[in-house]
């Protein structure tokens, strides 16, 4: 089928360009590792405090960092497509008979692969700090993160192509990503928050994904929390893929 073939072609090209310049992958991973090293130990001391969800500090903290990696990494990929658009790459691909969905899906696939590599590095580092989770939980956690990252990438490309300017895109991304992350209880669980803040965070779909990964890391896989989080992640991917594909198709309207 031409969609899969085209996706593969777009993916290979994007992946090759990323591998040519692995610096960005390293910069992307350095932030969560800094959190792990410089903030994680603080949590150790207070993880037993009342209001904290069950599980040890690393089981609570690492899922948050994974979501941060996925959401932030994903939201920022739009900068790359603005550069490609300016160089004429997007237009030359749009004028080819390639599937419009493939043009964005191939790039998102690259972003997801990069994200998974970063996530594996992060989890391995966390294990050195003392994270202890079953293998199957890691696999399931990575799958959820991959979906989250894919939806963030799709949204990011759609927004970037809508504004086509780094100057406009940067504040948009920051103003969306920051509240999403703060309201997900990434650094500290939302169970510590006052009621109004908890209510606010309950509306944020990403919070439920963080909650699900935390449950997975505690090896409580077959639970309502995980079901809700996975369901939301799937819904996010579908909505984001639809929005992203439309933004590509709209380029020729």
């Amino acid at each position: 089928m031409t969609f899969f073939k085209d996706t593969w072609i777009v993916f290979s090209r994007a992946m090759r360009l990323s591998l040519q310049n692995p610096l960005w992958v390293i910069i992307g991973i350095s932030q969560p590792i800094l959190y792990l090293a410089l903030f994680g130990p603080l949590l150790q001391a207070i993880a037993g405090a009342p209001g904290f969800p069950p599980g040890d500090a690393w089981q609570i903290f690492v899922p948050g960092l994974l979501v941060q990696l996925g959401v932030f990494g994903g939201f920022f990929v739009g900068f790359g497509i603005i550069a490609e658009w300016r160089a004429g790459v997007i237009e030359r691909m749009l004028v080819s008979p390639a599937s419009r969905t493939a043009l964005i899906a191939g790039r998102v696939l690259r972003d997801v692969i990069v994200l998974i590599v970063q996530a594996i590095i992060l989890v391995v580092c966390a294990m050195f700090f003392g994270l202890s989770v079953p293998f199957i939980a890691i696999v399931l956690g990575l799958i959820i993160i991959a979906m989250l990252g894919a939806s963030a990438s799709f949204f990011s490309y759609a927004m970037a192509l809508a504004v086509k300017s780094e100057d406009a895109f940067a504040p948009i991304v920051n103003s969306i990503a920051l509240p999403i992350l703060l309201l997900s209880g990434i650094l500290l669980p939302m169970s510590l928050a006052p009621v109004w803040l908890q209510t606010l965070s309950d509306i944020n779909p990403f919070k439920h994904v963080v909650t699900a990964i935390r449950a997975v890391f505690r090896n409580e896989i077959v639970t309502g929390e995980v079901g809700l989080g996975v369901g939301i992640a799937i819904a996010l991917v579908l909505i984001a893929a639809f929005v992203g594909t439309r933004s590509f198709a709209n380029q020729t309207k």
Binding site: L17, Q20, N21, A83, E84, R86, A87, G88, V89, E91, R92, V95
Partner: peptide
Amino acid sequence: YVAQSGTTTGE
């Protein structure tokens, strides 16, 4: 089609 803006990224 060869656009005014070019077709390739520098890298």
